[in-house]
Amino acid sequence: MGIIQTNKLVFEYIRRDEEGNAEGITRAVDEVDLDVKQGEFVAILGHNGSGKSTLAKHINAILYPTEGTVLVDGQDTREEAHVWEIRQKAGMVFQNPDNQIIGQVVEEDVGFGPENMGVPTKEIWERVEESLKAVGMYAFRKHSPNKLSGGQKQRVSIAGVIAMHPKCIILDEPTAMLDPNGRKEVIRVVRALNHVEEVTILLITHYMEEVIYADRVIVMDQGRAVMQGTPREIFSQVERLKSLRLDVPQVTMLAHSLQKKGVPLPDGILTAEELADALGYRKG
């Protein structure tokens, strides 16, 4: 059984006007079935308002389903007794690092989660050390988070989640506010956690290039999961993605427009090396 399972997950909320009168019901998530295996790297794409963040917030029990179920490691998020355990198993990283860091010193901030879980002091420090090393921020452990760059802050946020020893990390547009180098650092850390530590990753992003490393891509539209497949399968459908307000990686787009000009190329090219291969330029 998968680490994250949703069965016909529906989330509805009541829209209200200024006076607070109910105006109607919005279905933000519409019968989504998800089955994510332990150790899998799943990316979720979708335009603003497609329901991807609402879906993500169900996985660590910030929101509860209107209909259907969400199981995290076999536990139903609607059972109150499980909520804290679920939040420890499925950690969440948000877009703005400034809203997630609370400590005055980096290592204190990272220790906050395990401390709240009642982990013994000695083990907290061990976890802080290993988490900061995992994100490459150990050298900054005594620094004030205020002085760090966006990418560094976001890596500290990730360390704070790792210190709780989650089985799964959900990242909701973790790179949206970062400069190119910050984006690279964060994605490198996410891939390493998945690869080396076998942490299950659920990555929500608007950067198509960050998705090519995923095992599987899910595309959301109007609350539904409308496309699912490997990055190559998904990015082969350029026109469909564009109609969903999305995009494809730049190299995929280049190959696609060359194709339209009559250059014989396969669909779904994901890297410059693949493009060189397809154009007939041999390695070395």
Binding site: D179, N181, E209, Q250, L254, A272, E273, A276, R282
Partner: peptide, 29 residues
């Protein structure tokens, strides 16, 4: 300094390294 060239520039560099005689002063699709 924490920045980068546009991806198109890197793509063209890779093609050139692989032996395609393309110019690399390219920044857009």
């Amino acid at each position: 300094v924490g920045l980068a060239a546009p991806q198109m520039t890197y793509i063209m560099r890779t093609l050139r390294r692989r032996g395609m005689e393309v110019g690399t002063d390219v920044t857009t699709l």
